[in-house]
Simulated assay, not measured.
Amino acid sequence: MKLLRIALPLLATLFSAPSLANNNSGFGLGVAYDLGAGVTAQFRGTSIFVNSDAIAVDMRLQNFYNDRRTMHAYIDAGGFFVGGDHDDYNDKAGVRLPIGLSFGIAPSLQAYIQAVPNFAFSDNDRKEGFGVDGALGVRLRF
């Protein structure tokens, strides 16, 4: 619940941006499995993932496009926070470096898959350290 107090105002601010009113605004909204199942939004080079227990924010470092620009590989850098259920002892936060592949399914529909190397910090020694996760999602582009 403490995460929702942060995530909901952040998403409301993102959705109310005046530049979203025009077409091809660089905005996408969808569903994903990243730190669990949740909602994903992207505005230009910034991606946000939110669910009831976690939040991740990533900024685009580099894009690599194919000739027709229908598919591209990318490298992002960001951070994350995962709540530990009802116990602050199991909370963890850290840095991550998503490396992914994105492709168009339809003119306004984009799918992506990524490997997410990360380093987590936590009060619980078993939850701390280097790891590699994955993410899979679909976004509707506006």
Results as ranks from 00 to 15, higher is better:
residue 1 M to A: 13
residue 51 N to Y: 09
residue 99 I to H: 06
residue 127 K to A: 00
residue 110 Q to V: 13
residue 71 M to T: 14
residue 93 A to P: 00
residue 118 N to Y: 10
residue 84 G to Q: 00
residue 139 R to P: 01
residue 38 G to M: 10
residue 10 L to W: 00
residue 43 F to E: 02
residue 27 F to A: 11
residue 98 P to R: 10
residue 73 A to K: 13
residue 12 A to I: 10
residue 130 F to H: 14
residue 4 L to Q: 03
residue 140 L to P: 05
residue 61 L to E: 01
residue 33 Y to H: 08
residue 63 N to L: 00
residue 37 A to P: 05
residue 137 G to M: 06
residue 64 F to L: 13
residue 31 V to D: 09
residue 135 A to Y: 06
residue 118 N to S: 14
residue 102 S to M: 12
residue 103 F to I: 04
residue 24 N to R: 06
residue 34 D to E: 09
residue 14 L to F: 03
residue 16 S to D: 15
residue 9 P to Y: 10
residue 47 S to D: 14
residue 62 Q to Y: 15
residue 139 R to D: 00
residue 112 Y to C: 12
residue 138 V to T: 00
residue 52 S to M: 08
residue 115 A to F: 13
residue 26 G to V: 05
residue 45 G to S: 12
residue 70 T to L: 11
residue 33 Y to C: 06
residue 92 K to E: 14
residue 21 A to H: 01
residue 68 R to C: 14
residue 96 R to A: 01
residue 51 N to C: 10
residue 52 S to E: 11
residue 12 A to H: 07
residue 72 H to M: 10
residue 116 V to D: 14
residue 113 I to L: 09
residue 77 A to W: 06
residue 72 H to A: 08
residue 113 I to G: 12
residue 119 F to K: 13
residue 107 P to E: 12
residue 67 D to G: 11
residue 47 S to T: 14
residue 23 N to D: 15
residue 103 F to Q: 02
residue 3 L to Q: 03
residue 127 K to S: 04
residue 74 Y to V: 04
residue 116 V to L: 14
residue 123 D to C: 01
residue 73 A to L: 12
residue 128 E to T: 01
residue 112 Y to V: 13
residue 106 A to N: 06
residue 68 R to T: 15
residue 107 P to C: 09
residue 78 G to T: 03
residue 82 V to L: 01
residue 32 A to G: 03
residue 112 Y to N: 08
residue 125 D to A: 07
residue 15 F to Y: 04
residue 44 R to M: 10
residue 61 L to K: 02
residue 41 A to G: 03
residue 68 R to K: 15
residue 116 V to C: 14
residue 16 S to K: 08
residue 78 G to A: 10
residue 78 G to Q: 04
residue 68 R to D: 14
residue 79 G to L: 05
residue 21 A to W: 03
residue 14 L to A: 07
residue 16 S to A: 14
residue 52 S to Q: 11
residue 9 P to S: 12
residue 85 D to F: 05
residue 73 A to M: 13
residue 136 L to V: 14
residue 60 R to F: 06
residue 91 D to A: 00
residue 107 P to F: 10
residue 51 N to K: 08
residue 99 I to P: 08
residue 69 R to Y: 04
residue 22 N to W: 10
residue 90 N to A: 00
residue 94 G to H: 10
residue 20 L to V: 12
residue 106 A to S: 05
residue 12 A to P: 01
